[in-house]
Amino acid sequence: MLAGAAAIFGLVMILLVFSFRRNKNSGEEEGQIRVWIIGLGLAFPALVLGALLAYGLVVGERLLPRDGVNLVQVSAQARRWEWRFTYADAPALETTGVLHIPAGRPVDIAITTADVIHSFWVPRLAGKLDAIPGHTNTLRLEADAPGTYQGVSAEFSGAGYDAFAFQVVVHDESDWAAFLQGQPE
């Protein structure tokens, strides 16, 4: 996307610079309209954008939650300024500020809020999804490798917004089982 944008920008700049040339053979106004407006103004963006849009929709569709096998379900509830996570596989368990998930399995995170609007964002695992009062939004993500990932809330929520962060700890299979038993690591 960046390369394409740079190419288009370059093209526009070259056209601008060349307009300062002294002897251009400009020709009839109608021909100019055909080149500039119909060609460059209408057809060119329509083609580029059509392709880009299709690409974006295909990628977006792939990121959507589907009925996965082996699905893990967790809930994330935001409040100012703390995330609380609960786990469908271990109803008694609640963690604050740290979300635990297994590696290599699809995870559905049901995102809600107890007060204002927040947004759940773990940049390296998935895009953002908002936590909106009265609604539950479900984010699908899948972490390939165990490790610790940083997450933040990405919707302005007042004075404590700066430091409103959390962590996602991704476990391998045995650690995950241990975590659900209530004995993390």
């Binding site: 601008l16 307009s19 500039w36 209408l42 880009l52």
Partner: peptide, 25 residues
């Protein structure tokens, strides 16, 4: 809405290129 948002770049493009065409003219 994604389609509409990209589509809106077309009339913008028409104006931009009409202006550059004016400069060439």
């Amino acid at each position: 809405f994604s389609a509409a948002s990209t589509l809106v770049a077309v009339p913008t493009g028409v104006q931009i290129f009409a202006w550059i065409g004016t400069m060439w003219k």
